[in-house]
Amino acid sequence: MTLLISGKMTNQLLEFKEIIRSRQSSEQRKTDKQTRKLLLYLFTSTRGGFTRLRIIIHLLDQGYNTHQLAQKLELDYKAVQHHMKVLEKNNMVSKIGEKYGAIFYLSNFLEINIGALDEAIDKLDRKMNKTKIYM
């Protein structure tokens, strides 16, 4: 069962990587060290990194409110609400409106640094496929 879930997640990560690469501009600037560290932390060093990455991928083309994201991702509303707060606090998303009807979009900061997610996806893939051997 774990292998099946891990394989599905790996396939999704490959899809995400292709989507991110297609969004990069030809004149992509180098991401600064602090931004790189922030993106790696948010998407690879915390338990919700994969879910936050899924949220970002959905927000690439259009904005959604929390309820719509919860439905699209098939997740609990409160879980999505938590991830949106984390993403907003770290300037990954911007919102228009208040409370239930607030629509979230990618922030300008993340749009400019979208190419740096490529590295985060690679690290997350390696982390998810690492086999633990106990001796």
Rank of each mutant, 00 (worst) to 15 (best):
M1E: 12
T2F: 14
T2A: 08
L3E: 11
I5R: 13
I5F: 12
S6P: 05
G7T: 11
M9P: 00
M9D: 06
M9Q: 13
T10F: 10
T10I: 08
N11W: 12
L14I: 15
E15V: 13
I19N: 10
I19H: 08
I20G: 04
I20K: 05
I20H: 05
S22K: 08
S22F: 00
R23M: 09
R23F: 02
R23N: 08
Q28A: 13
T31A: 13
K33I: 15
K33N: 14
K33Q: 15
Q34G: 01
T35W: 05
T35F: 09
T35A: 10
R36P: 00
R36L: 15
L38W: 03
L39G: 01
L39M: 10
L40G: 01
Y41I: 01
L42C: 11
L42K: 03
L42Y: 03
T44M: 05
S45Q: 15
R47W: 08
G48E: 04
G48M: 07
T51I: 08
R52Y: 04
L53K: 05
L53T: 07
I56L: 13
I56W: 06
I56Q: 07
I56P: 11
I56N: 06
I57S: 04
I57W: 07
I57H: 05
H58V: 06
L60G: 02
L60K: 04
L60D: 02
L60Y: 06
D61F: 06
D61K: 08
D61G: 12
Q62F: 14
G63C: 02
Y64Q: 02
T66E: 07
Q68F: 05
Q68E: 14
L69Q: 06
L69T: 08
L69H: 08
L69D: 03
A70R: 11
A70Q: 11
K72E: 09
K72I: 10
L73V: 10
L73Q: 09
L73S: 09
E74W: 11
E74P: 00
L75W: 06
D76F: 08
D76Y: 09
D76I: 14
Y77H: 05
Y77K: 01
Y77D: 00
A79H: 04
V80Q: 03
Q81P: 00
Q81C: 08
H82R: 07
H82Q: 03
H83L: 02
H83C: 02
L87V: 06
L87T: 01
E88L: 12
K89P: 00
N91R: 12
N91S: 11
S94G: 00
K95H: 09
K95P: 04
I96Y: 14
A102G: 01
I103Y: 03
F104G: 00
Y105P: 02
L106N: 04
L110V: 07
E111I: 11
I112G: 00
N113M: 03
I114Y: 03
G115E: 01
G115D: 05
G115I: 03
D118F: 13
I121N: 01
L124C: 06
L124I: 10
R126D: 15
R126I: 15
R126N: 14
K127S: 05
M128P: 00
N129F: 01
K130V: 14
K132V: 13
I133G: 06
M135D: 05
